[in-house]
Design a binder for these strands. Structure first.
Lengths: 224, 224
DNA sequence: CCTCCTCCTGAGACCTCGCTGAGAAGGCTG
DNA sequence: CAGCCTTCTCAGCGAGGTCTCAGGAGGAGG
């Protein structure tokens, strides 16, 4: 899941970046309104966290501009408590949610998750593929009744594949969303696909995670 | 435990915040009905204290709206003595308890604790996990028959984990709910988990409080 | 059948995360 | 003020997780 954080205050931006990355998000930063608008337009983000008080172009205007361009990426606005802007205005302009500073970090994460859930047509809380199931909130994976232990990286990879089950996803795409880089050796994806297979395919070789030569990987919707 | 206080009168709001914080609650404020509704919807509160007389949207309507949305967070209503609304109306609308102003601060805390204890009537007064039990009201912890002495911080941590037993909770979440901060060094959580383990795992090493590397901690429902 | 290329995998280096003991700081009690 | 308790910080360590590398299997194309 890719998040764009538009925030001029460096310390706050860095703290958000670290925190969200720890939660498994891929985080990009923009430090003023113009840069933020540019990134939001061209990057493919699942959600944007947008401060209101920004140099060059206020978050208020960034939001207005994006909506005017028919860009409906979910936006969560941040405002200072005594801000000159009323938060209700923010919602009127097309923001999906707002938080007042100082806000709690866990609340931010919870609301981001809520936005992501809402946006994609009320995704079920638990992802499934055949008798394979993954619960992002509880961070749990089951094959039938038995739990499967995954490392953080393995979990992020499986979650990404399950969200796009039956689709072929390229290694570049996987690197971008799960590793948050694009110039890394794609071999690391192969290695982790290998790890995952050993864990999710169970004793008698299913084939949940298929290789599509020259194109990428596909997670079979029936779980193999 | 997180509390949302919706109260427009600044002095009263500030007093409640200070007082409840001293009791170990994490307190957020909202100053009008709309803001309160918004916060209650999106924040993850364990209980909401809701004044009836509010600008923009009455507490009465906030409560009605929340219940209409299937949001069952425990609500304690506050009303002025001569209010136009009857408390019975409040309870009809789905509030869980009410207090008439002027109320005694001690009574307020007691009722909040009561609400948390029953958690809208679905949870027992005493939290349990195997032969581990914790009584929030009496501030007492037992492993089987033998009492365990905990410091306030240790107790708060264990209570939080027991309320969410079997779930994986991140260090950030723990910091948020038990320490009421989010940019603190997470090491303090590790240290306190260590303290707790030494006290609750007993002489021959159970494993009630499990580490989920890269994700957080889980309190096993069977007590280890 | 041979060659090229993609993908798989075991080994191992490296680094991060979580645990722990030591102890400083602050508050409360006697 | 001394002694005790609680909270929190810090630094070192060990285990576990991540990633790189190189060799090999096997499909695709000639």
């Amino acid at each position: 899941m890719r998040v764009l954080v538009v925030e001029d205050e460096r310390r706050m931006a860095a703290a958000l970046q670290r925190g969200l990355q720890a939660e498994g998000f891929a985080v990009d930063l923009a430090h003023d309104g113009e840069q933020g608008l540019h990134e939001a337009r061209h990057g493919e983000y699942d959600v944007v966290v947008l401060d209101i008080m920004l140099p060059r172009l206020s978050g208020y205007n960034v939001c207005k501009q994006l909506r005017a361009e028919e860009n409906w990426v979910p936006i969560l606005m941040l405002s200072a408590k005594d801000g000159e802007y009323d938060m209700a205005d923010g919602l009127d302009l097309g923001a999906d949610d707002y938080l007042t500073k100082p806000f709690s970090y866990v609340v931010l994460v919870a609301r981001l998750r809520a936005l992501l859930r809402r946006d994609s047509g009320r995704r079920p809380a638990v992802l499934g593929a055949g008798d394979l199931s993954l619960d992002p909130a509880r961070r749990r994976v089951l094959r039938g009744e038995t739990a499967i232990e995954l490392t953080p990286r393995e979990f992020a990879l499986l979650e990404f594949l399950m969200r796009r089950r039956d689709e072929v996803v390229s290694k570049a795409e996987i690197l971008e969303h799960v590793w948050d880089t694009f110039d890394t050796d794609p071999n690391v994806v192969e290695v982790y696909v290998g790890y995952l297979r050993r864990k999710i395919d169970g004793p008698f070789g299913r084939n949940a995670l298929q290789t599509v030569r020259g194109a990428g990987y596909r997670l079979a919707g029936d779980g193999g």
